[in-house]
Design a protein around this nucleic acid. Structure first.
Lengths: 153, 153
DNA sequence: TATTGACCTTAACTTAACTTGAGGTTTTAA
DNA sequence: TTAAAACCTCAAGTTAAGTTAAGGTCAATA
């Protein structure tokens, strides 16, 4: 058994199976592959065959997307996973740490926003000069820096 | 003085002024108008003239966007503002209530997500059958309903 | 009054994240 | 063995939320 053959034995999930199991369409799996987020081997008939950990990768991609992280960022982070061996608990754990921080920031941003909505949009003060909602350095400034996190969502 | 003339007297902000004051580009103001989120009158030379409350509308649009609400949804909500008179404190307050609820839901969703990231992505259990991240009815189900809120962000 | 800057419209371009379709091959199952 | 189902590639289409460009008009100012 050659090395290549051994790899194919480990990588025996078809694209259709992975699609069904992970809940994303086949076209999305192709797309993720072109973007470098997942990888596949090919059988003799040129069809994709996946190793089982692709399922975790896709699940992680979806979770990260739900946090508002772009595919490009997800790709960067996934790139920190080991290339040759199957990722371990520790590997995945390190990933989740990175995103946890981002998620915390986003939650905090949302909560600040909520206070603003509370206090400012609802306040009814229609004076352009007094209302903080019109004050670039205050409200908009905060949005501009915070929105970097959100606009990618 | 005709009714039209009176309206123009009230609506005397140029598009350039509104752009500068609100921090969005002229092209965005045009765009919002084509989408029905703001309105303008025209002077004799066919140039746009805005009533001052357009500034609040734009500020509200931006705040809502930062919450991850789409322009289409924002349009729907803005449509509940009175058409003929200038919106009052009460009117704006009602708006903010609607979005507050959405924002609360989003925050809650993010927090649930955070727990998942904590407990699941980081857990390292690579078994497809045991790990809840692979369980459609649990994790993905939650994402699928929750993602409605987020995917529009 | 002339010119510069602000405006006008319409059309096409941009990015992200995919999906759809066309035309052709491989696998699977009766 | 043969037909259906699954797969392949590549190109083009889709949506959101705008931006950019082209070609022309209007308004403010030296």
């Amino acid at each position: 058994m050659t090395v290549q053959q051994k790899k194919l034995t480990e990588a025996n999930l078809t694209v259709g199976f992975v699609a069904k199991r992970s809940g994303v369409k086949v076209s999305a799996l192709h797309f993720y592959e072109t973007k470098g987020l997942i990888r596949s081997l090919r059988n003799n008939g040129n069809q994709r065959r996946y190793k089982p950990d692709v399922l975790r990768r896709v699940a992680v991609i979806k979770a990260a997307q739900a946090m508002g992280i772009t595919l490009e960022e997800i790709k960067q982070t996934l790139a920190t996973l080991p290339d040759e061996r199957t990722p371990t608990k520790k590997d995945w754990s390190a990933l989740s740490k990175q995103w946890q921080t981002q998620l915390d920031e986003r939650i905090a941003f949302m909560q600040r926003l909520r206070e603003r909505v509370d206090g400012c949009i609802g306040c009814g003060c229609l004076s352009m000069d007094k209302c903080p909602i019109y004050n670039k350095d205050d409200y908009l400034g905060e949005e501009q820096s915070g929105a970097v996190l959100l606009e990618n969502g």
